[in-house]
Design a protein around this nucleic acid. Structure first.
Length: 862
RNA sequence: GGGUCUAUAGCUCAGUUGGUUAGAGCGCUACAUUGACAUUGUAGAGGUCUCCCGUUCGAGUCGGGAUAGACCCACCA
């Protein structure tokens, strides 16, 4: 037998173990030896952006998903975990642009589209490799043979097919809508791509002209050139009689057709209580225009300049025009007030330029349109339905509300982006003609739409595009992988992207495959530092997963991320926490080391015979173990990873190592130990795959792989509550002795457990009262019970101990009378369930017994 | 402004359908220990479960209200 090192050395084994798993082929469910009717268990990995290396948040995601996958693989499911990465169009283009500027001093326009895209792909291949390497380091049991990328050939096919199908169904349309426009980037921005900046600005109060009855207040006078209405609150008595009136006014020499409308969103207390409605350049105003059927007048163009036909303002930038308008108003004596105010300016998250809301021709997904394909329902209705009737369950459930809330307020989704890197839009134009199709139309002079699609369009298809939807879904029928693995069982992701991603996946899957994309959505929290602050590069408080893996090992990192994290709540993590789990891994290793050196021929045993469970300690540990098996299984089934991990840890450390192993130094039972080890390695495997696999393979000389062993099942025959209770009492007694052990020179556990194997509790108490340890440093073997001669009274502060006992007796007496009262209460008897009353009766007995014991002890003290 | 959530030990959090001495880890204090364990073990101190009202035989748990905080959405014309 080769010597086993004192501590587990993760760096030495982890890569080899991962390689062994990968080469076994069992990451791919097709290679698992399963009955034909084995249920599928699919998780599609939320594809990380290839903009940067992974952070601890990703590690947490990987740990949770790998736990689920390994657990279900062992439970006999056809477990598939499908890997992939996301091209993250805008974010990636942005990173590469910045890099180019820094390294070569060039913009993307300097390079041109073709060369720029080459640079993007070059960058992408590097980061992609890093990310996939990191993922392997985490021990992720992903099926690499099915790896996907949101912008690879297969996904391109799927995206085109999807776009065309949605277009043909009327779910995608091209329309003029107000969008967030960045005049510098020349691109639309989604709402979530905006950044808000607090700034001071001036609020101007003025009338359009002298004869106009209402003064309005605005921070952007230049846009007022496009006003088509003035909105007031319907409750506002000042303006009530004016509502509905129309007329033409001349504003700085520009004629405006103004209608006075009522809208309850107008605040009476702000400004003059009247709002000039500029449909073309304000989101709210656009909605008002839609509601009131107003004309839309575009004032500012895509370059951020005033358009033609606006007298001498034309051609000036918006800011210049603002000054000019203000100057004219002043000159005409129309400006009533000019005051400073705090304002929340929307800016482009890339370049920080102020965003200009503009009407523009874009592609949209119609979320409210009734679709034939969806049985006459709209995407929104369908997406709401599956949450409301619980076809899709959110964990924790409270997020269902957030989802429903958001979907209910959903507007048409703008899917076109004016950037280079991304999925091409399968639309071609020739003059006024338009062609939508998966392949370019025949004939000359067709020009493809220069825009690309919003990243979320392709990531919204992730669950089915990864399963070969473009080939595997025809005439409403699934085949191949899609049939085998869709819908998936769990989507595990962060709560912050429910709206961005989760909801979109649901809509796209309902449309494309006619079914939900996943049955459960498990939402993890954010990984924060130990002070509860978000980890960020700029703050320098981030923990690099690779660093801590090198330092403490993957298992420790995984455990630290899993234990103490509950769904939907943020998790705090520190190196100390990881270190403490490293100690746990070492503990586990040493349990193995001790066992293997003490019993060189020990075997891991899957099933144990009743007869082999001999002593009280054996019965106790085996019983506790079997309870643990069912608890851990239920907890994991219920997504309570942290609870399961804690229970496992507490059993391994506090019960197995601290008690059973100590006892086994006196009374050996190889079979029970082999049985217990077999089970804990399996139970701990999804949490700490490397160390458990290493121990397992060493124990079996490498002939089997733990990863595909069967998940343990509770053997009810081995649960012995009576033995558990007795042993617990024993522990309590020993604890009491330890409490007064100031003069002890050896750990009483060993002495007392020696007794426990042969004699009754009562006898132990009696002996304890008399024995005294003579030999100050005996070894386990030399202790002879007969030589122990301890007078307990000599070892304790009698007065203190008396007081303590007195107090405890008082408490117990109170408890006993209270419980007796309760049990004689008629209302309790009639309303409490049987279980409860039984338990209460049991409790009473226990209290009474304890009371007797304490009284006895007090008596013994004299 | 609309919505969701949280409040339990010094800190981070558990606490299942209400059930009777409210738990864990870390930290703290004391003692022991180089023994399978880059230590570990044992014990201890520490709580009016934010506050008020209600339902109930019984409330950390259910209902109403207050206070404080977190987040999401919409917006700041």
């Amino acid at each position: 037998m080769p010597e086993i090192p004192k501590t587990y050395e993760p760096a030495k084994y982890e890569d080899k173990i991962y390689k062994r798993w990968e080469e076994s082929g069992f990451f791919n469910p097709d290679n698992l030896d399963l009955p034909k009717n084995a249920k599928p268990y699919t998780i599609v990995l939320p594809p990380p952006n290839i903009t940067d290396k992974l952070h601890l948040g990703h590690s947490s995601m990987l740990a949770i998903q790998d736990l689920l996958i390994r657990f279900h693989r062992m439970k006999g499911y056809r477990a598939l975990w499908l890997p992939g990465t996301d091209h993250a169009s805008i974010a990636t283009q942005n990173v590469v642009e910045k890099k180019l500027l820094k390294e070569m001093g060039k913009t993307r326009h300097d390079l041109g589209k073709v060369k720029f895209l080459q640079e993007v792909w070059k960058f992408l291949r590097v980061t992609q490799k890093t990310i996939l390497g990191q993922t392997r380091k985490m021990g992720a049991s992903l099926d690499w043979s099915r790896e996907a990328f949101t912008l690879d050939e297969e996904r391109k096919k799927a995206v085109k097919k999807m776009f065309v199908e949605m277009y043909n169904e009327g779910a995608i349309y091209r329309g003029e809508r107000i969008v967030n426009w960045c005049p510098r980037c020349k691109s639309t921005l989604a709402d979530d791509e905006l950044e808000y900046e607090n700034q001071k600005t001036k609020l101007y109060t003025f009338k359009y002209s002298k004869d106009f009855p209402i003064a309005i207040a605005t921070t952007r006078p230049e846009t007022k050139l496009g006003d088509t209405a003035v909105a007031v609150n319907p409750k506002d008595l000042r303006y009530k009689k004016l509502i509905g009136q129309t007329g033409t006014v001349y504003f700085c020499g520009v004629p405006l057709k103004i209608k006075i409308i009522a809208d309850r969103n107008v605040e009476m207390d702000f400004g003059t209580g009247a709002l000039g409605v500029t449909p073309a350049h304000s989101m709210v105003d656009w909605k008002m225009a839609e509601d009131n059927d107003l004309e839309i007048v575009k004032v500012i163009d895509e370059d951020g300049k005033i358009r033609n036909d606006f007298s001498n303002f034309s051609g000036h930038t918006a800011l210049e025009a603002r000054e000019m308008v203000v100057a004219e108003l002043k000159k005409a004596g129309l400006l009533e007030k000019e005051e400073e105010m705090e304002n929340n300016l929307s800016t482009c998250y890339r370049c920080g330029t102020a965003v200009e809301p503009l009407p523009s021709k874009q592609w949209f997904i119609a979320v409210d349109k009734k679709l034939k394909r969806l049985g006459g329902k709209s995407l929104k209705e369908k997406a709401l339905e599956v949450a409301k009737n619980k076809k899709i369950q959110f964990i924790p459930v409270r997020f269902t509300n957030r989802y429903i809330d958001w979907i209910s307020n959903l507007h048409d989704w703008c899917i076109s982006r004016q950037i280079w890197f991304g999925h091409e839009i399968p639309v071609w134009y020739k003059g006024e003609e338009i062609f939508v199709g998966e392949k370019a139309p025949k004939g000359k002079n067709w020009i493809q739409d220069p825009d690309t699609l919003d990243t979320w369009f392709s990531s919204g298809m992730w669950t089915f595009s990864t399963l070969g939807w473009s080939q595997n879904f025809k005439n409403g029928k699934k085949s191949g992988d899609l049939k085998k693995f869709h819908p998936t069982q769990v989507l595990e992701t962060g709560y912050e992207i429910i709206t961005l991603w989760v909801s979109r996946m649901i809509m796209m899957s309902l449309f494309a495959v006619g079914e939900i994309p996943f049955e459960n959505v498990y939402l993890h929290g954010m990984v924060l530092d130990k002070f509860g602050k978000k980890m960020s590069k700029s703050k320098g408080n981030g923990i690099d997963p690779l660093d801590v893996i090198n330092q403490f090992g993957t298992d420790a990192v995984r455990l630290a991320l899993l234990v103490g994290s509950t769904p939907g709540n943020d998790v705090r993590i520190s190196e100390e926490k990881i270190e403490s789990f490293r100690n746990f891994v070492t503990k586990l290793w040493n349990i193995y080391r001790y066992s293997a050196t003490t019993y060189p021929d020990m075997k891991l045993i899957e099933k144990i015979n009743f007869r082999d469970v001999k002593t009280l300690a054996d019965k106790w540990i085996v019983s506790k173990l079997n309870v643990l098996i069912s608890e851990v299984t239920t907890d994991l089934d219920g997504y309570k990873f942290s609870l399961a991990g804690e229970k496992l840890q507490s059993f391994i450390w506090n019960d197995l190592a601290d008690w059973y192993l100590e006892i086994s130094k006196i009374e050996k039972n190889e079979k029970v130990l082999g049985y217990v080890l077999d089970k804990i390695l399996k139970l701990a495997h999804p949490f700490a795959p490397f160390v458990t696999e290493k121990i397992w393979q060493d124990s079996f000389s490498g002939s089997k792989i733990l990863m595909i062993e069967k998940w343990p099942v509770t053997d009810k025959k081995l649960i012995d509550k009576k033995a558990e209770r007795e042993f617990q009492k024993l522990q309590e007694i020993i604890g009491q002795v330890r409490n007064i052990r100031s003069s002890y020179k050896i750990d009483p556990v060993r002495v007392i457990t020696a007794y426990s194997l042969k004699i009754t509790n009562q006898e132990i108490i009696e002996k304890l009262a008399r024995v005294k340890i003579v030999n100050s440093k005996p070894t386990t073997k030399t202790i002879k019970i007969a030589n122990l001669n301890l007078d307990i009274a000599e070892l304790i502060d009698t007065e203190k101990e008396k007081a303590r006992l007195q107090k405890e007796i008082e408490n117990l007496e109170k408890l006993v009378t209270n419980t007796e009262k309760l049990l004689s209460n008629k209302k309790f008897i009639s309303s409490a369930p049987k279980e409860i009353s039984e338990r209460t009766k049991g409790n009473l007995k226990e209290y009474q017994e304890k009371l007797e014991n304490q009284k006895e002890l007090l008596k013994n003290l004299g």
